[in-house]
Structure formats: structure tokens, C-alpha cells
Nucleic acid binder design. Structure first.
Length: 274
DNA sequence: TGGAAGTTTCCTGTTT
DNA sequence: GAAACAGGAAACTTCC
């Protein structure tokens, strides 16, 4: 979302993917590390409704917060409005999760330039040097939603032990999320960042959740890189996609090759959820 | 340590 | 004939 304009497929494939979900509380992991600078539109004040919603998604992901814990309809606002909310507003809007969201947005507002790539993170004490030697991305290259997601950008203020204890007591967590982002979430995130992933996957029917792979093997390679699996192919990826039919995360689209549709159990792709 | 979840890999057969 | 789809089966990785 509000990240660096783009990066190449090659650079993605050679960069370390950020296994954000391997760190149930990424902010804790990142505590004590300096943030790196990123682009102007990373400042939450300039976010669109869509970006606000994405931020919510990423906070949920990084904290493994049950999706049902956050009433998305209460966040049908843009970044400017979001930044004007007070702590009580967050509590009213998101209940027990409110303080997590408040801390995150407070930090983002105060830094305005917060970006941490967990994949490149070395666990070492805070130093005067940025742990990310080169965060520049040539134009026209492809954005990697997992590397550059806000999931990796959660406020260090979350590292507060009090918050952590409070959070673990009061918030349900996802039952299981074995290897970080799920495949369908990975696909969804690519779709939600079309300007940064030109020609990989595109919406066929945005309102119905129908999408089509344009470069199936490229997507498979990207997925393989994320999973540190250089032998990933579209054939294997598509097998995993087909398992989603049973779970109703995806629905079959008969007669159309490379076309899938989000099912009732897939969330976060609808515009109306923003 | 065992079970569950979510893939990953391989395979055969079918459809486009 | 090639590419993609469909789905069974077993293995694997990770988390709890």
C-alpha cells in the first residue's frame, strides 16, 4: 500500500520475503530497531479509505487478531479522519482491539516514515545505522505485498509489555497460521496492489471477486520465493488453490482457464469492506 | 510428542 | 499436442 512505488520481480525473487506472520507480535520482534524512510504517501494522513482498510488488515495479521474482532464498518474513513480519532474513539470503534490500533496509528503519525522489512531484519540491538542498506526500488518494477506490507510496519510502541499482556488476555488469536501468509491472502494482496504488480493477476469482476492469472508462472515463482521454495510451479500452486474450494475460500469458475473467484470464507477483498 | 492445518509434491485422467 | 483443470494420496512444515 503506502509503500515504495515498486520493485522488480527479480528483486523480489532475490530478496528475503518478510515472514511477518512468523512473528505473532511483529512489533515486539522489531522493538528497539530503527525505522527506515519511505515515501511521502506512507504518512497515514494521506491514506485513502482503501489504505486505511489495508492497514487494519495488516494489524490484524501481525497480531493474529480474529477478523471478527474489528468492525470494519467503523473504519469507513480516510487517513485524515483516522488520524483525527482519539484514543476513546478507537476504543469505541474497535473495542478491546482499539488500543492496538491507536498505538499503531500514533506511531505511524509521529514517524510518518515508518518502514521495516522483517525479511531483512537482523535481530540486534538498536544502532545508529539503518538495518536496511538499500531500500530504493527502480521504477517500473513489481511490488511485493508481503515484503512491503504494513504488517511489517507496526509501531514499536506495541512492544510495551503491558500492552502485550493485555492483548494476550483480551484478544482471540487465529487458531493456526503455519507459514505466514496463506496463499489466498498472498493472491488477494497482489490484487489489492495492481499498480505495483502490473500484469500478474487482474480482476475480472471486482464486485463478484472474480480474478484471472495473467502470468501464472510468475505468480507461482513469487509464491515459491515467499515460501523459500524455488521449485514452485503454477501446477502446484493451482493444486493448493483447488483445496480452497472445499473450504469455500474460493469458488469454481467453470469453463474459464486461470480464473478463480473468492468464496464466502475469503475476506478482505471487497471494496465495501474498506 | 502427537495432532491439526495448510500446503507441497506427484500422479492420473479430463477438458479446452 | 500443450496447457490447464480436477482431485486422490502421501509427505512435509509449522504451530499448539
Amino acid at each position: 500500500m503506502s509503500i515504495i512505488p515498486s520493485t522488480t520481480l527479480d528483486s523480489q525473487l532475490t530478496s528475503t520475503w518478510g515472514p511477518a506472520s512468523l512473528y505473532p507480535d511483529g512489533a515486539l520482534v522489531m522493538s528497539g530497531y530503527r525505522s527506515c524512510l519511505w515515501s511521502h504517501d506512507s504518512q497515514p494522513q494521506f491514506w485513502s479509505k482503501y489504505q486505511v482498510w489495508e492497514w487494519l488488515q495488516q494489524v490484524m495479521d501481525i497480531h493474529q487478531i480474529d477478523a471478527a474482532s474489528i468492525p470494519f464498518q467503523n473504519f469507513d474513513i480516510d487517513g485524515h479522519q483516522l488520524c483525527s480519532l482519539s484514543y476513546p474513539d478507537f476504543i469505541r470503534a474497535a473495542g478491546s482491539v482499539g488500543h492496538i490500533l491507536f498505538n499503531s496509528i500514533t506511531e505511524l503519525k509521529s514517524s510518518g516514515q515508518y518502514h521495516v522489512d522483517i525479511g531483512q531484519l537482523e535481530l540486534k540491538p538498536e544502532t545508529d545505522t539503518c538495518p536496511f542498506p538499500d531500500v530504493s526500488y527502480p521504477p517500473g518494477e513489481i511490488y511485493d505485498p508481503s515484503v512491503h506490507s504494513l504488517a511489517a510496519d507496526i509501531s514499536p510502541t506495541h512492544s510495551s509489555p503491558d500492552i502485550k499482556r493485555s492483548f494476550s488476555r483480551s484478544h482471540p488469536v487465529k487458531k493456526h497460521n503455519p507459514r505466514g501468509t496463506h496463499l489466498w491472502e498472498f493472491i488477494r494482496d497482489i490484487l489489492l496492489n495492481p499498480e505495483r504488480n502490473p500484469g500478474l493477476i487482474k480482476w475480472e469482476d471486482r464486485t463478484e471477486g472474480v480474478f484471472r492469472f495473467l502470468k501464472s508462472e510468475a505468480v507461482a515463482q513469487l509464491w515459491g520465493k515467499k515460501k523459500n521454495n524455488s521449485s514452485m510451479t503454477y501446477e502446484k500452486l493451482s493444486r493448493a488453490m483447488r483445496y480452497y474450494y472445499k473450504r469455500e475460500i474460493l469458488e469454481r469458475v467453470d469453463g474459464r482457464r486461470l480464473v478463480y473467484k473468492f468464496g464466502r470464507n475469503a475476506r478482505g477483498w471487497r471494496e465495501t469492506e474498506k
